[in-house]
């Protein structure tokens, strides 16, 4: 598959603060790539470098396998942080400016305005728009000229639940048409719902990168309790499929290498002379996993 984007050891320093510590990413064509990280982890700085508004201190990047240039940026639809438009101009006129910059015919303006449901209000000044409408207009601008890749930074920031759902649905629809999407977010839930691939960054370092289902693969967890907790502990340690044991609030939380039924483990314990008073399997919550990865 063709690489839409690859970066090699991007680093950025603000004074003595190292905000990016050598980020290397690979984004394949047709993927929905999530760049996940808590606030302040360096997501926006990374995107700023990729769009040539922040100069990196070292490292390099390629779009579509070519050295970056403003001509290539015309083929990238971007929404970075806040919607940036002239308040005194109408939505339509703002998009005319964007279309002229991207060298896209003005006839495309109505199409993108319809996609984001702003066609009826295209003559209204940008400053009269609500936050959600501003965000949708920024998305419309990003869609002008049907770019090969969409780069979205926290696209659902500040939106109400309905707005969030709409934007997510829109992203999925665009992705289905074959557009590559790079989505920066601090919400694991969002990345999990929308993305096929992801990278997690924390404090400017890349923690992990790969397919979403591989990184967030379900882990098999069991909660166990017995009268004789000490004996149960030694028993579990001997059990072949147990990867890890933790004691929490008088309960053992056991990580298993594969999914085995509750009956199997119950039978094993009982045969060794321990009667369980509590047995529960649970799927690890994604948030907890995210925290674990980033901590």
């Amino acid at each position: 598959m063709e690489k839409i984007l690859s970066t090699q050891k991007l680093s950025k320093r603000y004074g003595s603060l190292q905000v990016l510590k050598g980020i290397s990413l690979e984004v394949e064509e047709g993927s929905v790539f999530g760049l996940l990280g808590p606030n302040g982890s360096g997501k926006t700085t990374t995107l700023g470098i990729l769009l040539d508004i922040i100069p990196q201190n070292s490292g390099s990047y390629n779009w579509f396998g070519q050295a970056p240039s403003h001509q290539l940026r015309k083929q990238i639809g971007s929404l970075l942080e806040t919607p940036n438009f002239f308040g005194y101009l109408s939505a339509e006129r703002n998009l005319k400016i964007t279309a002229d910059i991207k060298e896209v015919p003005h006839t495309d303006i109505d199409r993108v305005l319809k996609i984001v449901n702003l066609y009826e209000r295209k003559k209204d000044k940008f400053k009269t728009y609500s936050l959600g409408m501003k965000q949708r207009l920024a998305l419309a601008a990003a869609l002008l000229g049907q770019p090969k890749v969409l780069l979205l930074d926290e696209p659902t920031n500040g939106l109400d639940p309905q707005g969030i759902a709409e934007i997510r649905e829109l992203i999925l629809r665009i992705a289905k048409e074959g557009t590559t999407i790079i989505l920066a977010s601090h919400m694991l839930d969002e990345v999990e719902k929308v993305c096929t691939h992801m990278a997690i960054i924390k404090k400017g370092s890349l923690i992990v990168q790969g397919r979403v289902d591989e990184i967030l693969g379900d882990e098999f967890l069991l909660e166990l309790k017995a009268e004789d907790m000490i004996k149960l502990g030694t028993l579990l340690k001997e059990y072949a499929m147990v990867k890890d044991i933790k004691e929490e609030l008088g309960v053992y939380i056991v990580k298993l290498t594969e999914n085995i039924s509750n009956a199997q483990i119950n039978e094993y314990c009982f045969k060794q002379g321990v009667a369980l008073t509590h047995l529960m399997s649970k799927k690890k919550k994604l948030e907890a996993q995210f925290l674990e990865i980033t901590n």
């Binding site: 769009l51 240039s69 403003h70 015309k74 970075l80 940036n84 438009f85 002239f86 910059i101 991207k102």
Partner: peptide
Amino acid sequence: TNEYSYKTLRQNIIDGMSKWE
């Protein structure tokens, strides 16, 4: 200065204007 306060300078570069342009 509008280009700075509306952040459109930054947006125009993002959208594909070169710095010379």
